[in-house]
Structure formats: structure tokens, C-alpha cells
Computed example of a mutant assay.
Amino acid sequence: MTRRPTRNQPGFWPDACGIAGVDEAGRGPLAGPLLVAAVILHPERRIDGLNDSKQLSEAERERLFPMIIESATAFAIIEVSVNRIDQLNIFQATMAGMREAVLALPEQPECIRVDGNKLPKQLPVPAEAIVKGDAHHAEIAAASILAKVSRDRLMLTLDQQFPDYGFGRHKGYPTPEHLAALQAFGPCACHRRSYAPVRALLAPALF
């Protein structure tokens, strides 16, 4: 038995086989890569508590991450580097990462649901862009959790490499703490040079 998800449900699961959900984490931060996930869930493999990653605590996301990996019929997680973001711009980098995540799935889906209002070009099967799709469709919610947890873990690693910036706390987002660290120490290797607060601190000849 399956249920159609609704926005206020504490958890939901897919109502059809072969649907790939696609979502990203990390469009807004000043530092660190973008992570994109694609996942195909099976409607008979219920994951209790599945929901939009933004509605879940860090502990809940960490709990659900291995459950999604185990229950999914297929998944892929793609990292889009800081250099690529700076070269393409964040929108084009996101579109490229979404397409690559779909193509990296070990099995081809019957259709694709992408969170947002734009679709990547040249997807291999029919696709639909859904605004706030991670709050309404289980496969997109699962992708959002895979992307978010993967990125948060990566930012903890970067926090060890660059301890002056507090990446473990703000995950690269432009918080007052992060902006103050940028002013004090300048950009590091994992900052996005094309983002205005970082670009403003760089000499024109270096950008």
C-alpha cells in the first residue's frame, strides 16, 4: 500500500516505481562545492520519517541517510567543484550537476522529478521541474537528504583543513561569523571567487 505525500506529513514515500528524484545542496554558500543527488526509491520499501531535508534536524538527516542508501533501488551523488562553479556560474553548475547525477544512476529511470523551476538539458527520459518538490515528493526529499548530508560531512572535513573559518558550524553560508572570518583572513582555496563577498576581497588582477 502506498500514500500520496502531502506537505504537512511527517514522512512519506513514493507512489510509483522508476521515478528518479533530483535535488542539490549548497547553492548559496560562499565556500565549498555543490552536491547533487539523484535517487530512485521503491514504493514498497517504506522509510519512516522521510521528509524535506530542511524540515529535519541534522540528527534526523544522519539517521535517514543510510536508510535511503539501503532502500533505494539506485542512487548517485555528484560533487561540483568550486572551480567549476566559478567557471560556469552557480545556475549552470547546478544544471550540469543534476544531469550528471541522473546519468550516473546505475539504472535508467522511467521519468525524473527535479526540485525547482528549471530542468537540465538533454536528460535521457521525460522530466518535470517541481517548485518545492522536496516537500511533496518522496524521491526528491530523499535526494535532498543525500545531498545535504554529503555536503555537511564534506564541510566538516574542510573545517579541519581551514580551521579559521568555522566551516563546521555554518557550512560555508554567509553568516556574520563567516563574513568576519573572510575579512580577517581573506579567502582560502575553497572559497567561490565568483561570489560577491569573496570577489570584493580579491585584487582585480587575481580574479
Rank of each mutant, 00 (worst) to 15 (best):
P5F: 07
T6D: 08
T6F: 11
N8P: 05
P10M: 05
P10D: 06
F12A: 10
A16F: 07
A20R: 01
V22T: 00
V22S: 02
V22H: 00
G28S: 12
P29S: 06
L41A: 09
H42D: 15
R45L: 11
D48F: 15
G49W: 10
E58T: 07
E58S: 12
E62R: 09
P66H: 08
E70D: 14
F75L: 14
V80M: 07
S81M: 06
V82P: 12
R84S: 13
D86N: 08
T94A: 14
R99G: 14
R99A: 15
A101Y: 05
P106E: 11
V114W: 01
D115V: 03
K118D: 03
K118Q: 11
K118F: 15
P120H: 03
P120G: 10
K121M: 11
Q122P: 08
P124W: 10
P126T: 02
G133C: 05
I140A: 07
A142Q: 02
S144H: 02
K148A: 03
V149Q: 02
R153Y: 08
L156R: 04
L158S: 01
L158C: 09
Q160L: 13
G166Y: 04
R169G: 13
T175D: 15
T175Y: 10
T175W: 08
A180W: 12
A184W: 14
F185M: 12
C188T: 06
R192P: 15
A196P: 08
P197M: 03
R199I: 06
A200M: 08
L201Q: 04
A203N: 09
A203C: 11
